[in-house]
């Protein structure tokens, strides 16, 4: 399969990139890792006039935890996050998602920002960032906008990002003590999109859950923010009963259809199971 014709620019600074976006408007399309975009071009589901390659922008793939803020550059690759010592030791939800997305080769190229902007409801990063209550920073020439992760994702393949904007950074509050998180994903094989994914972040204080973040993958038209489940959790002491109750609250917002991955009942059952398991795992880590 062969992509259609397009022009190509490869800016080497953020400024140049923003200029290119301003110039090309809705005829331009950013290519980051390209692991979703290039297959779509080959299928001719997308036919942009100009591709703006941001892979040469400097400093877009950094990770830092400073001054109470955890920051991810938009060009962080999935594998980079999956193997990052800070993630594997502290932000397990990021490390686990980073090693479950697609396959190892795709993970070497695919990027955090690209995945968020692609907004596939079966993709994983949106749920993770919802759970972390992250902020997504969108920049255009002369202006910056910020959105909460749940707000950023509007629906299937649609986000708040405007044609002339670029996501530069994703950030969230750094965790203090008592933080535990997990990402669980059911995939039929490596490389498959999720049947169900649960991203969970908990902070425990004095034996009770002080804050909770729950994001759901493949459970609706976008990555879902399970606010009711969070409400069930906050202020309570972790227990199997509590987790079961939170799981039901998550299941209540799932809007799923039958396909070769299973019936709606089955998918909801997986969600229920994963919520319970994911919460238990996150709580255990929070207590460690």
């Amino acid at each position: 399969m062969y992509p259609p014709r397009f022009d190509y620019v490869a800016p080497t600074s953020l400024e140049e990139a923003l200029d290119a976006l301003a110039e090309h408007g809705d005829e331009g399309k950013i290519i980051a890792g390209g692991q979703s975009l290039i297959p779509m071009l080959k299928l001719r589901f997308a036919s942009p006039e100009t591709l703006i390659d941001i892979n040469r922008l400097p400093g877009m793939d950094g990770v830092s935890e400073e001054g109470g803020t955890l920051r991810f550059g938009a060009l962080c690759r999935h594998n980079q996050l999956g193997a990052h010592p800070l993630m594997t030791s502290k932000y397990h939800v990021v490390a686990e998602a980073g090693t479950l997305i697609a396959d190892p080769l795709v993970r070497n190229m695919g990027s955090l920002g690209g995945s968020l902007c692609h907004a596939d409801p079966q993709a994983d990063w949106g749920s993770v960032m919802i759970a972390l209550k992250a902020t997504i920073v969108c920049q255009k020439k002369g202006a910056t906008r910020e959105f909460g992760a749940a707000e950023f994702m509007e629906g299937i393949f649609t986000t708040k990002l405007a044609d002339d904007e670029i996501v530069t950074e994703i950030r969230c509050d750094a965790a203090n003590g008592g933080f535990g998180s997990s990402y669980l994903k059911m995939e039929r094989k490596v490389g498959d999109f999720a049947t169900c994914g649960t991203a969970i972040a908990l902070t425990l204080k004095d034996g009770t859950i002080a804050s909770a973040g729950v994001g759901l993958t493949a459970m609706g038209a976008k990555n879902l923010h399970a606010e009711d489940a969070e409400k069930v959790l906050v202020g309570q002491a972790p227990s199997a009963e509590l987790f079961a109750e939170a799981a039901e609250a998550a299941v209540a917002i799932a809007d799923v259809r039958e396909d070769s991955r299973g019936t709606p009942e089955y998918k909801k059952n997986v969600l229920r199971t994963f919520m319970k398991r994911g919460l238990a795992k996150a709580a255990l880590r929070a207590q460690a």
């Binding site: 059911m186 039929r188 070769s260 991955r261 299973g262 019936t263 009942e265 089955y266 059952n269």
Partner: peptide, 11 residues
């Protein structure tokens, strides 16, 4: 024998 089919059979 997908996991969905197994679960449905169990139910």
């Amino acid at each position: 024998v997908t996991s969905g089919r197994v679960w449905e059979a169990i139910q």
